[in-house]
Write a protein that binds this DNA or RNA. Structure first.
Lengths: 229, 229
DNA sequence: TATTTTTGCGTAAAATTGACACTAATGCAA
DNA sequence: TTGCATTAGTGTCAATTTTACGCAAAAATA
């Protein structure tokens, strides 16, 4: 049986980074083609012999040379005129990584790659603004009940870093004492020996997220909810 | 630019119903073809000129003659060998409806259509079992913070109905008094004048979910969380 | 050594959750 | 008609969780 269908399948990724208390997004700029000069989410067509997950990982590597710390499927966009040249259904992903871990570089297709502060995103190609906003909402919702915020930080971090991260992403003030108490009470964040010297003020212990501990806790059916007034 | 890609795009729907205190799933059976005699989720290929949402609605109508009360995109499945005949990427949907609202009927393709109790699902074609389980988990998770359970009930229902529904879906006992207190406290469920006579026992007031009220409450930023010990 | 900056900690009031048992209304059978 | 079985409807108190809030400690710098 032959199926008449002329739809192409693509993947796109909203890659969030975090740098100097700013949430950032990784974008690429087409130097040629129909969408020349337009910034867009990294992504591309899925190959016949790769899964969707593999496709995003590949595209991210090829286009931006980064490797996500965390990657989850977000939503599939399928409006008819998303792409004016042809019908494209795109599976969008949400990716998190620590900005400092990578030197981004434009790939051979002469694309430009750049981090943008989330509050200074330029006009985007296609329906990528919609995708971005959905990813942001998912991120906001998800850090409240899953410890994915750590994927945006270095392996070891002062407590104030995770605290600022939550405030930045949720865009609201959080009581430092209550936040710390609650987060530590879960038991998946551990103190290290190391200390961090801030540019001024009292030195801080470094903490790290213990993934194994977290997995164990999850298995026991414990349910986290990191919400703050 | 010509893209070399040979991937077909399909949609599949996990349709949940609720009948006599049982969660049910709507399945179809291919009478012919490679998957002959196998039960499967309703679904099919997306047409070039319809969106994904439109495709599911159409397929549901064509294959099972039902119209979902609630429909949300679930996840997109893209493993290489999901379908042995060709590469198919399938966008799965979660649908809810009140079983009694419809007389299901097999369509012209001579498919058989049937409701199955969720705990008596037969072997399913393709990776449909995975899809089903993911839908179930989503449903379980979602009724805790969004009032989608009502989509499975008749417009007006005795309180015990919603109570049983939660117990069935979450698969645990819930304290009747606390449940009622909390759910009513949200303010989006209203009493009607009508009463319902159970086969035995004291008659019950009928309640209804007030969607408008809910929307208003949501706008004011109120956040519900219907979790129970 | 005084000032600034950031870290680190405890307590009490308020709100929410969880546990728990009896009365009310109806149908049916004795 | 009475009593039995069945389901609906309701309130209180203890325990837990959440929220609000302020001050001392460690370092750098002036």
């Amino acid at each position: 049986m032959q199926i008449q269908q002329n739809i192409k399948v693509a993947v796109d990724a909203v890659v969030f980074g975090y740098n100097e208390n700013k949430l950032q997004v990784l974008l690429i700029q087409q130097k040629f083609g129909l969408e020349k000069d337009n910034w867009a989410l990294p992504g591309g067509f899925v190959k016949d012999d790769e899964t969707l997950d593999e496709a995003v990982v590949r595209e991210l590597k090829e286009e931006t040379s980064v490797k996500a710390n965390y990657l989850e499927q977000l939503y599939t966009f399928g409006k008819l005129d998303r792409d004016k040249r042809r019908r494209v259904v795109s599976i969008a992903y949400l990716a998190l990584l620590n900005t400092k871990d990578f030197t981004i570089r434009a790939d051979t297709d002469a694309k430009d790659v750049q981090w943008f502060d989330f509050d200074k995103i330029p006009a985007l190609a296609f329906d990528h603004k919609d995708i971005l906003m959905m990813a942001y909402k998912r991120l906001q919702a998800k850090i409240n009940y899953q410890p994915i915020g750590f994927e945006l930080l270095k392996n070891e971090f002062p407590f104030s870093a995770i605290e600022n991260l939550y405030q930045t992403i949720l865009n609201k003030k959080i009581d430092r004492r209550n936040f710390r108490k609650k987060l530590l009470s879960f038991g998946f964040i551990e103190e290290t020996e190391k200390i961090h010297k801030p540019s001024s003020g009292r030195p801080a212990k470094l903490f790290k997220f213990n993934q194994k501990k977290y997995n164990e806790l999850i298995k026991t059916g414990i349910h986290f909810e990191i919400k703050f007034a």
